[in-house]
Design a binder for these strands. Structure first.
Length: 802
RNA sequence: GGGCGGUUAGCUCAGCUGGGAGAGCGCCUGCCUUACAAGCAGGAGGUCGCAAGUUCGAGCCUUGCACCGCCCACCA
């Protein structure tokens, strides 16, 4: 064993062993209690980034911990086909070759996507292996696998059968960049600077005008009304009259609607149902038509007459110029407001009225609300439950059709009579009229439609497979807050709807790791840090430790020091193991705690076990790393190992056997966080045939917790000695430890300064205990603690000769 | 507009139901160099964002304010 632990080589070797020996595997036939986590399926094109690495580390700690606790433990891996994302990548590649989608055609395009995945996809599983992630890689699933596709089709048909599905013409979020609709959740509202133009609409009866304000003058070509608030006194007389939309020269009614904000602008608003969500709702309620003057390409359509074919910017310029000529522009002012942008492409969302497939969400969401409200599904941090509830309680229909080629094609067939046939696989004839002339819907499903099934479609659903019976429902979902609505909420309601219960009982939302500037890591700004480089440089153990340590709050800046701390911990453990292994002779691990320091370390190990169980169970991984660090450095190395060193050298068999047993326990406690170095050391223990990864987690053992005062006294004496150079009186046992530890006087140890410090503390404590209001109102244990402190200070002062 | 989180040592962050302000890194000093290309021991460094309130006692509870970040949202 070398003095410096080098993870390179060691880690890869164990990763191969664990996997080859089948120690990651979960079997349905295994009758032990199960513990199941599904890896959030990364996009098939993803490479490991900081979020993946952190989340995988957290999940692996849970998985390894439960595996050691004798659970039948399944960590399910796989990929998501990432409809829009992959199609965008492929479209770009085609464009680089000077080709368009139409050039290659649908069928060939899909083949190209598969080729791309074969060539460039699937890298992240290898990267997760290098992190030591103990996924059951044999069970790898992909959301476009044949079996998975069958589940998606069943889901669609199920929703149709239950009446949750409908096809309707509504206003949607159209992304010109993706050339597809996107759901409300995939729209980012971004503040932008626009120009607000105040335009006079003459009244049809020639009696004056009404002024509206708009940031999008070209859409006035699609105006069908002017609306005011019903209680707005200024416009009472105008309601029911007509106005003339300038340029378009169209007569439109002036209507009253409560959704108009009388405080905004003039209190009168142009109504354009074809291009604005609120206008669409008002228009629908007033039975107005929904003309559109902007097309799928974002340009002005034929409906725009003389402006057809122009970009919106060009149309804007020309229309405003025309209005100015007509003297109808009252004013123009800069205007700061928030506008929807496509989360994927960044393009400004174009609200358009299109025929799409929707899921009616209200009833589906209700059982999920109950599960969250009644604690069937808990969140960490807890506030996320409220966030999720407010989303589910205000949920709106989900637009699930996407105008893409890469994805699950919607299983709906249309006949010339206009009938629809909804079945899982291609029908031979129309279900209603028997027509053989069927045409499948061109669209594919939202990627998240298939992701929602992940916890059970990966186990064989809709078939009642042994895997499904054994491993559903799972236990924990660990993910980022960014996909809580997109993915987590949908797994919950889909699980309840199709499986009768939610797929997990706990959701852990991990921290976001930010760059040094406090913003999200950004490739273009060069602030990103690649976890695969961290692994290559510092090792997987150090990377895991560092990520878990730094990610204590919801958002945290990356700190290289945390990784370094992990490396140091592994190195320290390595070296204390070298010390013990080199000096135990042929001793076997055995508990023979004869002396106080041995009972003490066993009690400390058990206390740490309890702290770890609590922190891991509560997903407080940062607290867990802290426990491990102090246990290893302070307790095990600095006190215990130092104290027993002389006896090890002397060939004390009890000390040797107990030291090995204590080291075993330490390795077990550290294994979930630092799996590689602990397994490596474990393999060097005498007669070691079993693997640490499946070694039993230590049972609670409080039998050594009593009478630990001796160590406390030695530590107290050491502190006093270091600060003052004065030795307190100790018992022979205590002196032995004190000597073994070779306690040194601190630099500038100053008895006088220490005496003054203690006197001040004593005065403070005495003051508190003399305060009747404190002694009468404070809890007994607080008062008792204060008395003990006072005693200790007095004892120390006494030792200093005062 | 609504909601949530944050503001503690030079840096990254802990601080559980109110009861002596902490860790790691960095810095300074000493010791050891027969586990630790390092380790051990000690030290300096903080009006716990600001203000008021409750309390015997506030980093922690209440109210207001300031700044930072995130989420949701039909401000044309």
């Amino acid at each position: 064993m070398e003095p410096l632990y080098k993870p390179q080589g060691v880690e890869e070797r164990w990763q191969r062993s664990w996997e080859d020996e089948g120690l990651y595997n979960a079997e349905a036939a295994d009758s032990r209690e199960t513990f199941v986590i599904c890896l959030p399926p990364p996009n098939v094109t993803d490479r490991l980034h900081m979020g993946h690495a952190l989340n995988a580390s957290a999940q692996d700690v849970l998985i390894r911990w439960h595996r050691m606790r004798d659970f039948n433990t399944l960590w399910q891996p796989g990929y998501d086909h990432a409809g829009i994302a992959l199609q965008a990548v492929m479209t770009k590649r085609l464009a680089a070759e000077g080709k368009t989608l139409q050039d290659v055609g649908r069928e060939h395009f899909v083949e190209l996507c598969w080729d791309f995945i074969r060539d460039y996809g699937g890298q992240i599983m290898g990267q997760l292996r290098s992190l030591g992630a103990s996924l059951d890689y044999r069970r790898h699933r992909f959301t476009m696998d044949d079996d998975y596709a069958r589940a998606v089709m069943r889901f669609f048909v199920h929703l149709a059968d239950k009446g949750y599905l409908f096809r309707g013409t509504r206003i949607v979020n159209w992304c010109t960049g993706c050339a597809s609709t996107v759901s409300d959740l995939e729209v980012n509202h971004v503040d932008v600077d626009d120009t607000l133009t105040w335009i006079r609409y003459p009244l049809a009866d020639g009696e004056g005008h009404v002024t509206i304000a708009t940031v999008r003058p070209p859409t006035m070509l699609a105006d069908v009304a002017v609306a005011v608030h019903p209680d707005d006194e200024r416009y009472k007389d105008l309601v029911g009259k007509e106005a003339i939309v300038p340029v378009a020269e169209r007569r439109v009614p002036i209507i009253a609607d409560e959704r108009v904000d009388p405080e905004f602008g003039t209190g009168a608003v142009k109504i354009t149902p074809g291009h604005d969500p609120m206008d669409w709702e008002i228009g629908r309620d007033h039975g107005l038509s929904e003309p559109m003057v902007i097309g799928l390409d974002g340009r002005m359509t034929e409906e725009a007459g003389e402006f057809a074919g122009l970009t919106q910017a060009e149309a804007d310029e020309q229309i405003v110029a025309r209005l100015k000529e007509l003297g109808l522009v009252e004013k123009r002012e800069s205007f700061h407001h928030s506008v929807g942008h496509c989360d994927r492409s960044g393009d400004r969302i174009e609200p358009l009225v299109l025929l799409q497939w929707w899921v009616e969400m209200e009833d589906l969401a209700k059982p999920a609300v109950v599960a969250l409200r009644e604690g069937g599904v808990r969140s960490k941090p807890e506030q996320q439950t409220k966030v999720m509830l407010s989303y589910l309680e205000n949920i709106r229909p989900w637009c699930i059709s996407r105008q893409l080629w890469w994805g699950h094609r919607i299983p709906v067939w249309y006949c010339p009579e206009g009938h629809t046939t909804i079945v899982e696989s291609a029908p031979s004839a129309c279900a209603q009229c028997g027509s053989k002339e069927l045409r499948q819907d061109d669209d594919v499903l939202d990627t998240w439609f298939s992701s929602a099934l992940w916890p059970f479609a990966t186990l064989g659903w809709p078939d009642e497979t042994p895997d499904l019976v054994t491993f559903y429902p799972g236990d924990v979902c660990s993910t980022g807050r960014d996909i809580n609505f997109l993915w987590v909420s949908r797994m919950i309601w889909a699980g309840i709807e199709l499986m009768g219960e939610a797929p997990f009982h706990d959701v852990n939302y991990h921290a976001m790791i930010l760059a040094a500037d406090g913003r999200r890591m950004s490739k273009s700004l060069g602030t990103g840090i690649d976890p695969t480089e961290l692994i290559a440089e510092h090792g997987a153990d150090a990377t895991r430790y560092g990520l878990l340590k730094m990610a204590s709050t919801q958002d945290v800046r990356f700190s290289a020091g945390a990784i370094e701390e992990g490396r140091k911990l592994g190195n320290k453990l390595w070296n204390v193991s070298r010390l013990l292994l080199a000096n135990v002779g042929d001793a076997q691990p055995d508990l023979r705690p004869r002396d106080v320091e041995e009972r003490w370390i066993l009690a400390r190990l058990d206390a740490a076990r309890a702290e770890l169980e609590r922190s891991i169970a509560e997903f407080e991984f940062s607290a867990a790393t802290s426990t491990l660090y102090h246990l290893t450095f302070d307790d095990f190395c600095d006190w215990y190992a130092e104290a027993i060193k002389p006896r090890l050298y002397d060939g004390d068999e009890d000390a040797r056997a107990t030291a090995l047993a204590a080291l075993e326990r330490l390795l077990k406690l550290l294994h979930p966080v630092l799996p590689h170095v602990t397994e490596e050391i474990w393999s060097n223990l005498p007669d070691r045939e079993t693997r640490l990864i499946v070694a039993p987690w230590p049972e609670p053992d409080a039998s050594f917790a009593a009478d630990l005062g001796a160590l406390d006294r030695v530590q107290e004496a050491a502190t006093v000695f270091a600060r003052s150079g004065v030795r307190m009186e100790l018992d022979p046992d205590e002196i032995r430890i004190f000597e073994a530890k070779r306690v040194q006087p601190g630099v500038g140890g100053d008895a006088q300064a220490e005496i003054e410090r203690l006197r001040k503390e004593i005065a403070r404590a005495e003051g508190m205990l003399a305060n009747e209001r404190f002694t009468s109102k404070a809890p007994q244990d607080v008062i008792e603690a204060e008395r003990e402190k006072l005693e200790r200070y007095r004892r120390e002062l006494d030792a200093l000769g005062n």
